[in-house]
Structure formats: structure tokens, C-alpha cells
Simulated scan of single mutants.
Amino acid sequence: MNTARFLKSAGVGAGDEVIMSAYGDTEAAQSVVTVGAQPVFVDIDPSSYCIDPEAIAAALTSRTAGVVVASAFGCPPDLARIGELARAHGLLVVGAGEAEAGPDEVTQRRSHAAFLTGRLTGVRTPEPHEGHTYQRYVVRVPGNGRPDRDAFARALRGRGVACEVPVRAPVHRQPAFRSSLRLPETERAVDETLALPVQGSLRRRELQRMVSSCNALGGLLPTCLAGR
């Protein structure tokens, strides 16, 4: 979806506000600015990483024209509650979609995710959500936030596990949108999360190596890895 085009066609423009998550949605925020409206950043649900419906409700003003909703790493947002808010306040709901995978790939990812969730102890595994396609398998690293997460990631890569930090900075801390707004769950997620590979092509021995590496390293945090 071309978010800017959709917003413009719906009549969203100067003087309007559009509510959105600050967790990794830079392109959507830029689209709001492009049509002359103001992005209003709110916090996420820490279990799904999607926009928090109650944060939407708290941010509503007379200028609110719409809300941007999107799945996060394959986990769907609470569309039922967001839909209630949209109907009650006459809001435009804009979907910022993720790339879709075929059913076989999704089935394999879910199988891999179940394997990891059942065996990982060195990290905090994703909470189960209906409809999750595990586009990315995002865990939280225990310890002292970003320093320990980054050290953990370096150590995992050293053991041959291709992990990634999914969101490097929240949108409201990036130069184009910088503000003093405090979004604790978003900022905590940015500091703690790490995406482990879960693509369907992975073999069981690769998953097992990932489990062994994470579990061994998790026992070292925070005392040893924090100083690396």
C-alpha cells in the first residue's frame, strides 16, 4: 500500500493527526508528513510489539484523523479493539502491511518457532498470539538492556548464529522526528530485542545449535557479556 496516497485520497492533510507506533514504522511516519499531517507516536503492547489500542485511546484529540496499524514480525495487532475505537471516533484505519509468505513457509516457520520456544532458556521467547506467522522470531535478552543485548548478539554471531537487532532506534528518537516523548515499552523493546533466524529452509541441527548457543550464553548474563 502507498500510505501517502491512501491518506491523501481520504482527505487527510494539514492540521490532522495520525496515530502510529514508534517501533520501527519510519516509512509510515514519513508518509504522514508528506501529506502535511502530524504523526502522533504512541507505545506498543510489549507482548506483540504492535500498537497498543489503549495508547491509541489515550492519544485521541479533536484533530485525530486516523491510525496506522501493522503486524509486527508476523504478529497481528488487536484489530477488534482498534476497530471499536475507529468506529466510535470516526477514524481512518491505515494498514501498513508486511510482506506475505506462502502457507508452506508459514507452516514451517511456526514449526521452527514451536521448537525454539520449547527449548530456549537463555532468552525470553515470544508470547503466543493467534495468527502469528513468525516473519521474524524475536526474543528478549535478559540483563542490562542494550549493552547486554548487543554483546549477546556478537557472541551468537561468533558461534555461527545469524541474528539481527530488529529495530535500532524508535521513530520518535530519529533525527527527522526527534522529540522528548517517553514511550517506555517501545524504548525497552528497542534495547532488549533480538531476531533469531526462523526461515523455513533451516534444518533441525541449525535450530539445535541456536538453542545450545543461546542457552549457554544466557547463563553468562549480565556479569560476563556486559563487559565485552
Rank of each mutant, 00 (worst) to 15 (best):
S212I: 10
P126E: 00
L91H: 01
S62N: 14
T121G: 13
P222R: 03
V18P: 03
L183R: 00
G24W: 01
V69E: 11
A101S: 13
L116P: 02
I82C: 03
A88D: 12
L60R: 03
P128G: 00
C163H: 04
P175A: 05
L91F: 00
A55H: 06
G15A: 03
D25G: 14
E127T: 13
F177I: 01
I44H: 11
M1I: 04
G97S: 15
V69N: 06
C163P: 04
R178C: 10
E54Y: 12
N144C: 15
T133I: 01
C163I: 01
E100Y: 07
E127L: 12
L91C: 01
S9H: 13
Q174P: 08
P46N: 07
C50Q: 07
R136L: 10
V32A: 05
R149V: 02
P222H: 00
Q208F: 07
G66Y: 01
V68Y: 01
P175N: 10
D150Y: 07
G145L: 03
G97K: 13
G15M: 05
L181P: 02
G158L: 05
A155P: 04
V33K: 14
P126A: 02
E127I: 11
R173I: 06
L181E: 13
A59L: 02
P170W: 10
V165K: 06
R136M: 13
S71C: 07
A113G: 05
R173T: 09
G160D: 05
R109H: 05
T117P: 12
E17G: 03
L79M: 14
C75H: 04
L225E: 09
D191Y: 08
A29P: 09
R81E: 10
H172W: 05
L202R: 08
L221F: 01
G36P: 05
F152W: 08
R203T: 15
A55E: 10
A80F: 13
P142W: 09
V18L: 13
